[in-house]
Amino acid sequence: MIHLDRTKQQKIHNRRINTAIYEGQSDTIIVEGTLKDERFCDSHMVTGEIRPPFTVHHMIVRMELQLPDLTILDIEVEMPSVPHESCREIRECLEPLKGLCIAAGFIARVRKRIDRKQACTHLLTLVTAMAPAAFQGAWSARIRQPVDPETYAGMLSKLKNTCWAWREDGPLVEKLTNL
């Protein structure tokens, strides 16, 4: 068993990834993701410099998605804090994702469209973490109003086999399929 006593052991690093979903224009949603890495200890640099605790990365990705298929219409990147100024040169690296649908296989399609040597690993981490939340947010947006059976069936088909609870041969899918 792992022993962690938060009262005695110093936290040295924290990464937070947060995703929020907002209503967009007509049939769109805006998905905003934030990745923040914070270092809570001094950092000894190879140059001999000692950096006090600081925010290493603070990056924001916003995507406008078309409902119901979750096509990325637009994407933008903001970098309030980066470890090196040259990191900002890669802000446009997610542009090739425009037109891509967030659906099964999304991460593999992201990796196919974006060469890691020409991108920021932190932005790729963030955008792939945002995808499941975007799906949840799209579901929330769609069920704010009554949904016709055909639309509901299409939404349910996208949920199948996304996790244990939504497995195709499970009781939840069976129950909702037979409504």
Results as ranks from 00 to 15, higher is better:
Thr34Glu: 05
Glu32Lys: 08
Thr55Cys: 04
Val61Phe: 06
Pro53Lys: 12
His44Ala: 10
Thr28Ile: 08
Phe40His: 15
Phe40Cys: 11
His57Val: 07
Gly33Glu: 02
Phe40Trp: 10
Pro52Gly: 12
Val56Lys: 14
His57Gln: 03
Ile50Glu: 09
His44Ile: 08
Lys36Asn: 01
Val56Phe: 12
Thr47Ala: 12
His57Tyr: 01
Asp27Glu: 08
Cys41His: 07
Val46His: 06
Gly33Asp: 05
Glu32Trp: 09
Met59Thr: 12
Asp37Met: 01
Thr55Ile: 13
Thr28Gln: 14
Glu38Tyr: 00
Phe54Lys: 13
Met45Arg: 02
Thr34Asn: 13
Met63Asn: 10
Ile30Trp: 04
Thr47Trp: 02
Phe40Met: 15
Thr34Phe: 08
Arg39Thr: 09
Glu38Lys: 12
Pro53Gly: 08
Glu38Met: 02
Arg62Ile: 02
Val31Ala: 05
Thr55His: 11
His57Ala: 06
Thr28His: 14
Asp42Arg: 07
Val31Arg: 00
Asp37Tyr: 11
Glu32Ile: 08
Arg39Leu: 05
Phe54Ser: 12
Phe54Thr: 11
Lys36Arg: 15
Phe40Pro: 11
Ile50Asp: 13
His44Gln: 08
Lys36Pro: 02
Glu32Ser: 04
Phe40Ala: 07
Met59Ala: 03
Ser43Glu: 14
Ser43Gln: 12
His57Phe: 00
His44Thr: 04
Pro53Ala: 05
Ile50Ala: 13
Glu32Pro: 04
Arg51Asp: 06
Thr28Cys: 02
Met45Pro: 12
His44Gly: 11
Pro53Val: 14
Glu32His: 06
Arg62Ala: 12
Asp42Asn: 12
Gly33Ile: 07
Ile29Thr: 00
Ile50Arg: 09
Met63Trp: 03
Ile30Asn: 03
Ile60Tyr: 14
Cys41Gln: 06
Phe54Cys: 09
Arg51Phe: 05
Thr47Asp: 07
Met63Gly: 05
Leu35Lys: 13
Leu35Thr: 01
Val46Phe: 00
Phe40Thr: 11
Phe40Glu: 09
His44Leu: 03
Glu49Met: 03
Cys41Lys: 09
Ile50Gln: 05
Gly48His: 07
Phe54Asp: 09
Gly48Tyr: 01
Arg51His: 15
Pro52Ile: 06
Val46Ser: 15
Arg39Asn: 10
Pro53Asp: 09
Lys36Val: 02
Met45Val: 08
Lys36Gly: 02
Lys36His: 05
Ile50Gly: 14
Arg62Cys: 03
Arg39Ser: 09
Arg51Leu: 09
Arg51Ile: 04
Ser43Val: 10
Gly48Lys: 07
Ser43His: 07
Lys36Glu: 01
Ile30Phe: 04
Val61His: 02
Asp27Ile: 00
Met63His: 02
Ile50Trp: 00
Met63Cys: 10
Gly33Leu: 06
Arg62Gln: 14
Glu38Asp: 03
Gly48Asn: 04
Pro53Tyr: 03
Ile29Phe: 00
Leu35Ile: 10
Met59Trp: 10
His58Cys: 03
Pro52Asp: 10
Arg51Val: 07
Glu49Asp: 15
Asp27Gln: 15
Val56Tyr: 03
Thr47Gln: 09
His44Trp: 00
Ile29Asp: 04
Arg62Asp: 00
Asp42Ile: 11
Ile60Glu: 02
Gly48Arg: 07
Thr55Trp: 04
Cys41Phe: 13
Glu32Cys: 04
Ser43Ala: 14
His58Arg: 15
Pro53Trp: 03
Glu38Trp: 04
Pro52Trp: 07
Asp37Ser: 10
Thr47Ser: 15
